[in-house]
């Protein structure tokens, strides 16, 4: 995961700013302002936090195809935005497509900025500051670390099937056939792991330790916190005023 350690925003500021920014975006209805917010506010933040690559992938691989289809559907097929007579205004239909795409970029981008810019070593501390404690802190910690493990285990199981000669070749159909045989041992492993790991956590009091480790003081910059909070409040107010 492309976590950055460049900028440290206090978790509470991070959480509040994200919520305010999302609410602001949900009320946004001006394309120019939304474009401005994306290009002038969000993109520099992505660059500063070294998370531009992930955002770029999101825009190109997810939003761009949706935008093209939206353009075709609302700008040409229907020829009008929702609520208007079909065929009445292709230009407005196209504008609607742009508006939806920009909103997607902003909503997705704000979420990415919130999570992807959390320094890796501050992840659990952040969850703790957001109010997660005890068992739920463990769930959150486990949830973020488990994905690489499960991905790896899935690859290992697939390799193991190759090693035993159970997959005769690498054709797509053969690989699709492996899919259910991959999942069964994965699930059994998951259940057994859950059992063994909780015993381990109990034995070594790791849940307590996780709580203690994550309750260490969080050091962040006052000016950066103020800046982030100011942007999100300003964004919300602008959009509320423009309704």
């Amino acid at each position: 995961m492309p976590y950055s350690t460049h900028i440290s925003v206090h978790p509470k500021v991070r959480g509040i700013s994200t919520i305010l920014a999302i609410i602001g975006t949900l009320f946004a209805n001006d394309i120019i302002i939304m474009l401005f917010a994306w290009l002038v506010l969000l993109i520099p933040l992505f660059t500063l936090t070294s998370t531009m690559r992930s955002h770029g992938r999101f825009v190109i691989k997810i939003v761009a195809p949706i935008f093209i289809i939206l353009l075709v559907v609302w700008g040409w097929l229907v020829g009008a935005p929702p609520g208007l007579q079909p065929g009445s205004s292709s230009v407005d239909g196209a504008r609607f497509a742009i508006f939806i795409s920009l909103r997607l970029i902003l909503l997705g981008g704000i979420f990415q900025l919130c999570f992807l810019s959390i320094p890796y070593d501050k992840l659990i501390n952040t969850f703790r500051q957001w109010g997660l404690k005890g068992n739920w802190l463990v769930v959150a910690a486990g949830a973020f670390t488990i994905w690489p493990e499960l991905k790896l285990r899935g690859e290992q199981i697939l390799d193991a099937r190759y090693a035993r000669g159970l997959t005769p070749d690498r054709k797509l159909f053969s690989r699709i056939q492996q899919f259910p045989f991959l999942l069964r041992p994965l699930l059994t492993w998951a259940i057994r792991s859950a059992n063994d790991r909780t015993q381990l956590w109990d034995q070594r009091r790791l849940i307590l330790k996780l709580g203690r480790r994550s309750s260490q003081k969080y050091h962040s910059s006052f000016f950066i916190n103020a800046y982030v909070l100011l942007i999100s409040i300003t964004w919300l107010i602008i959009n509320l005023l423009f309704i």
Binding site: I146, K151, A194
Partner: peptide, 12 residues
Amino acid sequence: QFKLALIPLGIA
């Protein structure tokens, strides 16, 4: 915690 330990695995 056993059931809670299953949640990350279910997510994955």
